[in-house]
Amino acid sequence: MIQLSDVWYWIHGEQILSGVNLRVEAGDFVCLVGPSGAGKSTLLRLVHMEIFPSRGKVKVTDYETDSIRAKEIPLFRRRVGMIFQDFKLLEDRDVFENVAFALWATGVPRKRIKKKVFQVLAEVGLSHKRYAMMTELSGGEQQRVAIARALVNEPFVLLADEATGNLDAEATEEVLELLRKINRKGTAILLATHSENLVSNIPTRIVKIHEGRVSE
C-alpha cells in the first residue's frame, strides 16, 4: 500500500533521508522511532506528498510521487489522514466545525456532513463535547478532535507525527488506545515518535530511523 523505494531527500545542501526503503501494508501499525532530526517528519511529509523525493519514489496505493498531478493531490490527501503534535485545529471554531471542516472543504452535502461528524465523534468518544471550543478541551481531547477530523474522510492510512508529544501519560495512553482501535478496523497507522518507551507497550512493527536511514 505504501512503498518507499530508495528515497533520498536533501534540502539546502543538507541530507535528510538517505536511500530509504520501506513498505507498509494495509492494516499495518508501524511505529517509526528515532531521535529529533532523524528524518521522521520528512518521511511522513513525503508519504503525504507535501514534499517530493530528491531521488527515488514514494508510492501510496495508485499514487506515485513521480507521476501524481498537482490536481490529484487534494483527492489523494482526502484518503490519507494526518495528525500532529500541535493538533493543528482551528481555535475559533468548535469541535463539530473543526471536524466538519474536512468535509466542507471537499464538497460533501450538508446532511451527510452532520451524520458523518456525529458518527466519527462517537468513535473518538467526544459526542458530548461536540459544541465545545478548543480552549475548553484538554490536550488529549484536542488530539482526539484532530483524529476525528483525519478519520472523517475514511482514510486508508493515518499518519501520526509525534501525536502524543504534547500529552501527559494518561492522555497518551488514551490516544494510543484510540489508534489501536482504528487500526483494528483496518486503517493502517504510521506513527512517528522519538520515544522508545511509548512503542514498547504496543504490539506493532517498529522501524528505526537514524540520521536519515531506516532499519527494522
Binding site: R77, R78, R79, M82, K88, L90, A105, T106, G107
Partner: peptide, 16 residues
C-alpha cells in the same frame, strides 16, 4: 495561514 494549511491538509482543492 494556519487555516489555509489545514485546508491543504484535509484535501481542499486550490479553487476551494
Amino acid at each position: 495561514m494556519k487555516t489555509i494549511h489545514i485546508m491543504e491538509l484535509v484535501g481542499a482543492t486550490k479553487r476551494f
